[in-house]
Design a protein around this nucleic acid. Structure first.
Length: 420
DNA sequence: TCTGGGGTCCTAGGACCC
DNA sequence: TCTGGGGTCCTAGGACCC
């Protein structure tokens, strides 16, 4: 049996923790660059603020309805998320953190008949210890647990999707679009084939669906019947790719400015790489102009580079990343966004050295590695950007807009709230 | 004027091997 | 005239997720 724990309107809920006056008020959290809406309170949903709505389209609506909007504060959300996930560990030895606001729990140790009790215990404990309201869905497969959590969110209590009767009823009421893993394309295709509900999908012939689609769809069918097929392991061995990308606050036209951003994003990606104790052999950079502006030519390109050796050294990776960017940068365009991706990982401290490295190079690499560890340590202790690379620039005119960001209440000493 | 960021998994098809 | 069969590995790209 699986439980899916889902934090309700997570980013908004995080913001409300420290401003209780905003409870029952319409609140939204904006994406990076204050570009569009990525989290909405129930009140904001009721007013009709769509998910993903671009700011410039709904600015008037937000103002008229007195909606409180926040720039995204991922340090805060990340920290609150960790606290929630830690609490969940008490309820199961197998916690699969699926995203910042969701986790699957393996409840096979829980006796039948106790599921509802456990679910309510989870909801109560998380709310009391962190202030975050969560939904809990319990079912024999992950796909069904997702469906159950959706119902839990509406009902405000744990929802069990276990009994045959309930199962059939819920599946009948669930359009294929609402099934986890069935997106726009697949649902359109299923509807063409005359399959419109979860119940209909669950009742299709297994081999037929496998032939017409693929194993994923076959697994979906089984999962909907209550036979678990999706595997967990989302946090076990670190990521297979690490990406850092941002839209620029204003369009950039000069290579030097883009290079600053590339260096800065490389620093961020490399830090994550070291955190998960990996080294990378491939770095890829990309750049693009504004996709939505019909009056300007849209240009997007990327370049992948193999590094001379596995490494986690920001300086070395940045050198290659900047070189790669030079190759795809076309002068005369207004760039909107760029990004850096690290790929092809090996565990740090246990990887193939390059044949070409002589003793001196190996020593140099080790010293560089030590240096990076010190940089990371200082930045952890004294705050994000205490030590930066010169290449990241000082003025950084490309940094994203963030006009309504709340304090880092829980991760920066000077932002910790005072109680009078 | 203004539209996020960071991931995963799967498949098809090409290169290559014996 | 007639030109096999069975693999592996890699990559690009699509679809999906939150």
């Amino acid at each position: 049996m699986f439980a899916l724990i889902d934090c309700n309107n997570f980013f908004v809920s995080c913001e409300r923790l420290f401003l209780p006056a905003l409870r029952e008020k319409p609140v939204v959290v904006l994406s990076n660059n204050d570009g569009c809406v990525i989290s909405r309170s129930n009140e904001a949903k009721a007013i009709g603020v769509p998910m993903g709505a671009p700011m410039f389209e709904i600015r008037d609506l937000l103002k008229r309805e007195k909606v409180h909007s926040f720039s995204s504060n991922f340090q805060l959300y990340g920290d609150i998320s960790n606290r929630v996930m830690q609490i969940l560990q008490r309820f199961s030895p197998e916690v699969d953190v699926y995203s910042v606001d969701e986790a699957f729990l393996d409840l096979s140790g829980t006796p039948d008949g106790k599921f509802e009790e456990v679910g309510e215990d989870i909801r109560r404990t998380v709310l009391q210890w962190t202030g975050i309201p969560v939904s809990v869905g319990i079912a024999p497969s992950r796909t069904l647990a997702k469906l159950a959590a959706g119902i839990s969110k509406k009902q405000g209590k744990t929802f069990l999707l276990i009994e045959e009767e309930t199962l059939r009823e819920v599946r009948r009421r669930t359009p294929v679009e609402d099934i986890w893993g069935i997106g726009r394309k697949l649902s359109a295709s299923l509807r063409m084939a005359g399959i419109g509900t979860a119940e209909e999908l669950a009742n299709t012939n297994e081999t037929w669906i496998r032939q017409k689609y693929n194993v994923m769809m076959q697994r979906k069918v089984l999962e909907l019947r209550g036979i678990p097929c999706e595997s967990g392991e989302h946090e076990s061995s670190g990521k297979n790719a690490i990406m850092a990308s941002r839209s620029f606050g204003t369009p950039l036209t000069k290579l030097e400015d883009v290079q600053e951003a590339v260096t800065s994003y490389t620093a961020r990606a490399s830090r994550k790489l070291r955190e998960q104790q990996s080294v990378a052999r491939v770095v890829s950079v990309y750049i693009q102009t504004n996709r939505h502006n019909p009056r300007e030519r849209y240009y997007a390109n990327y370049q992948m580079v193999e590094l001379p050796s596995y490494t986690d050294d920001t300086a070395e990776i940045a050198r290659f990343a900047r070189e790669a960017m030079k190759k795809i940068f076309v002068p005369g365009l207004r760039y909107k966004k760029c990004g850096v991706t690290l790929m092809d990982f090996a565990p740090a401290g246990n990887f193939q050295q390059s044949l070409l490295d002589d003793a001196e190079t190996v020593l140099k690499r080790q010293r560089q590695h030590q240096l990076m560890l010190v940089v990371d340590k200082m930045n952890r202790k004294l705050g994000g950007d205490t030590l930066k690379f010169g290449g990241e620039g000082i003025a950084q005119k490309w940094t994203a807009k963030s006009e309504h960001c709340s304090p880092r209440y829980t991760t920066r000493w000077k932002d910790i709230p005072l109680v009078n």
